[in-house]
Amino acid sequence: MHEILVKAREEHYIPPEKRSNKYHGGMVEHKSWLGVLYTVILYAFMAIIILICIVPMWHVLTSSLSDGSILLFKKGIVWWPIQDSGAESMFNWGGYKLLFRNRGIWSGFLNTFIYVAGSTTLGFVLNVIGGYTISRKSMLSRPLALMLVLTLMFHGGLIPTYMVIKALGMVGTRWALIIPGCTSGIFMVIMANAFRNVPESTIEAAEIDGAGHFTIMFQVVLPQSLSIATVIILNTVILHWNSWYPASIYVPTKRNLWPIQLWIKEILAQNQPSSFLQAANPDYNKYLLQYCVILIASLPVLLLFPLFLKYIEKGVIIGGVKE
């Protein structure tokens, strides 16, 4: 046997000077000029993609610091804050000052905060309860699970839902924006799956020690499903932070209840260039207002999401891409 191996090695021996640079799937590969070309094009293309993704928000940032009267007529991307030739500094803070003084907008932020916090918390509790009940081995867990799943398939639609909420007296109040959309059957199903993966022995041990169901839910099962719970919470927070549509339906006239996104929509609608040109003594900083508020409203999510990237990506993979 040994001789065969030695012979084989001799036959296939390539002296070092003749060996090519090829390594198995390793870092150095034989580069053809075609491969290099491809790489260059690809990297350049990706750079364009990066720009396409980042530039719009950059544009918002720079616009918010520009001079409003010039900005009105500027077409195209603002690469750097544009100022009047006589301006003292690079940045015009007028828009932000106006933002700071605008009561309505701050109430918008407060409202969004309330809605996000309220909806997420309520939704989370319901998710845990729903998921727990379905994940138990009991007679009713299957029918109940079916009931939840059916909600994903059949919808009453816009009007019927509106009428139910109206009948509950919630139209025109904050509750319409906290309770109705706070959770969905799919989250409960996901939580139930996570709970089912918790080793039964830990639950049994708790039962033997006399733990009641609430204890088991929040102290045994949930802590072991923390990553999935985090994903659900993150998704809910982002969803509600960016939401405007329910508010436009349920509290259309009550500005003091508007979430921030609705305010943005309003300001955008008001800031048509035509209205500025017609006014006698326009405050051009008002035109900046939309950029300032967009920036401030988007900043929290944009700054925070990189921190939770791990969870977000994991969540997508676990849950499949929804929407």
Partner: peptide, 30 residues
Amino acid sequence: KEANISYLSQEYSLYPHMTVYENVAFPLRR
């Protein structure tokens, strides 16, 4: 709850998210 029985098997039954101290304290807190 009232039976005051304890059960030990081969399987992992400790609560993975609690420390040893908290694990042992759990029955008493119940």
